[in-house]
Structure formats: structure tokens, C-alpha cells
């Protein structure tokens, strides 16, 4: 079974992030970028399924020039077989649903039994892309997956629910998003990093993918950012050293603020 893993390049959390003041999009050149940490679990799950059932693992991403950096290459170094990048400068500023639209077009040209995404990206964190993608492909969409078992034309998964999980059985093909903790991602080996350079990376232009420029990018997205500003720094709070009565002072604070 062929698996496609959708990945995203995100800024390193530890690095400072800036929004471009002219259009409020993320200034992706201003800091270090990495493979979205939650996507590492998606890549790992795909590699494990390949090891168990055979097939090919393709990594897919979209964006303006540079979108493949530190994301697709990293996934290839971890063991994915090939990469596909939908690259078009018109994609800059695409929101979650516009992103899903582009991924859906690229996937329509590919053969797969399963599409795997991370359940969220560490920069935008909306978790909207996986279900939108499933709907656009007309496939079952199962999000927040913490366990996957494939059996012929069927997949059985655990979906995290508040206070537990549900066992879901679905037909394939399907779109799933996985949570952190579903597995223990491997580290890239030096050999993996070297061989990643030889692996095929197919670049599709917007036109190759068949996308309508009016549906993507900053202007095609159906949400618009009007303003962005840094959160004002928090006022310095009270710091108390416990000398036996700390809990009483804290209880006073909680009571004054009506939590007791």
C-alpha cells in the first residue's frame, strides 16, 4: 500500500517568530525552520506501515520557493522514498483551507491507500487541514489518531477522545491525522541524510497541479488577517518564598480572585 505523508515546514519554536508587517503573514526567512514536530510522528507511522505491508512512502508539501527546506528533505533522510512539492509563489499566505485545496489537487494525481498528516502544526495550530483535505478528496477523515492497524482494504485506528479513545474502523483509502506519542520517531542516520540527496523530489508548479490561482494565496484565502501585534508583556506578579505559610498566602490570593 502506498502512503502519502503531508508535511509542513515550521519555524523552530525556540526561535523568535515575526509576522511580515505589510501583510501579516509569517516571515519564514527570519528564523530557523524545521519539520513540524508532530509530522515526525506521521512520517514514522508511514515508515512502520511500509515495513509491515510494503509499498512506497511519498512526502508531500506545498508552498512558495523554499517550502521543501528542512521538511521534505528531513522526511527523506528518515526513510521516505520520494518527495513531491507543489511550488508556486502564488501560494504564499494560503490559509488552512486553501492549503487543503492544493494538497487535494496534488493527491488527485497520486495513487495511495492512506494519507497521513500531523494532527496540528506548531505554528498555526488550527488542526483544520486534515478534515478539510478528507472532504475535498471525498474520503473518510479520521483525526487525532493514536494507533493504526491496516488489514487489507480496512484500517482500524484509535482516535483520542477526552478521557479515553474510540476504536474506529474505516474503509481505505482514508485520510488520518496522528498525535504525538503514537510512536517513537527514529533519528535520521548519516547514511539516511546522505541518501536523501539522491532521492527523487518532484516539483509541480501551480499549473501542473491544476490549481485555480483565485483559490490560493493571501488573496484567494477565505480568511483574512486584519492586524497582528505582539502580546503585551505580562505584568510582574507576586513572588512568595515559602517559609511555612506560603500555602495560606496562596489561598488568600485564590480567594481574592474568587477561585475559592
Amino acid at each position: 500500500m502506498n502512503i502519502v505523508v503531508c508535511v509542513k515546514r515550521v519555524p523552530d519554536t525556540a526561535a523568535e517568530k515575526k509576522l511580515d508587517p505589510s501583510d501579516h503573514t509569517l516571515d519564514r526567512e527570519s528564523g530557523e525552520s524545521i519539520l513540524n514536530p508532530v509530522d515526525e510522528y506521521g512520517v514514522e507511522e508511514a515508515l512502520r506501515l511500509r515495513e509491515a505491508h510494503g509499498g512506497e512512502v511519498t512526502v508531500l508539501t506545498m508552498g512558495p520557493a523554499g517550502a521543501e527546506k528542512n521538511a521534505v528533505r528531513k522526511a527523506l533522510a528518515l526513510g521516505a522514498d520520494r518527495g513531491v512539492l507543489v511550488k508556486d509563489d502564488g501560494l504564499a499566505g494560503s490559509d488552512a483551507l486553501a492549503t487543503a485545496y492544493v494538497l487535494a489537487l496534488a493527491l488527485a494525481q497520486m495513487e495511495f491507500g492512506l494519507v497521513i498528516l500531523g494532527s496540528e502544526s506548531t505554528d498555526a495550530r488550527t488542526s483544520l487541514v486534515p478534515q478539510a483535505l478528507a472532504q475535498l478528496l471525498g474520503l473518510p477523515g479520521i483525526t487525532y489518531v493514536s494507533k493504526v492497524e491496516v488489514d487489507g482494504s480496512k484500517v482500524t485506528v484509535h482516535r483520542e477522545q477526552e478521557g479515553g479513545h474510540w476504536v474506529i474502523e474505516s474503509e481505505l483509502p482514508a485520510v488520518i491525522s496522528v498525535v504525538k506519542g503514537i510512536n517513537e520517531p527514529r533519528y535520521a542516520t548519516l547514511k539516511g541524510i546522505m541518501s536523501a540527496k539522491q532521492k527523487p523530489l518532484e516539483v509541480l508548479s501551480g499549473e501542473d497541479a491544476g490549481l485555480d490561482p483565485a483559490e490560493v494565496g493571501l488573496s484567494g484565502s477565505k480568511t483574512r488577517i486584519l492586524a497582528a501585534e505582539a502580546r503585551p508583556p505580562k505584568q510582574k506578579g507576586k513572588l512568595v518564598k515559602d517559609e511555612g505559610h506560603g500555602h495560606v498566602e496562596l489561598a488568600d490570593f485564590l480567594q481574592q480572585n474568587k477561585f475559592i
Binding site: D95, A96, L97, A100, Y101, R125, T126, S127, L128, V129, P130, Q131, A132, A134, Q135, L136, G141, T143, Y144, E160, Q161, E162, S221, K222, T223
Partner: peptide, 22 residues
């Protein structure tokens, strides 16, 4: 919340509109 965002995203892509979450 998890399910609310899922359904919102699914509905928005089916009817062709946008979603702002969180």
C-alpha cells in the same frame, strides 16, 4: 475543541467558505 473544529473544517470545505479557529 477537537470535534467542533473537525466538523467546522469539513463543513467549510464542503460549502466553500473559510474558518477561523481558536
Amino acid at each position: 475543541v477537537a470535534d467542533g473544529k473537525d466538523v467546522a473544517s469539513g463543513v467549510a470545505s464542503k460549502v466553500g467558505t473559510g474558518v477561523v479557529a481558536d
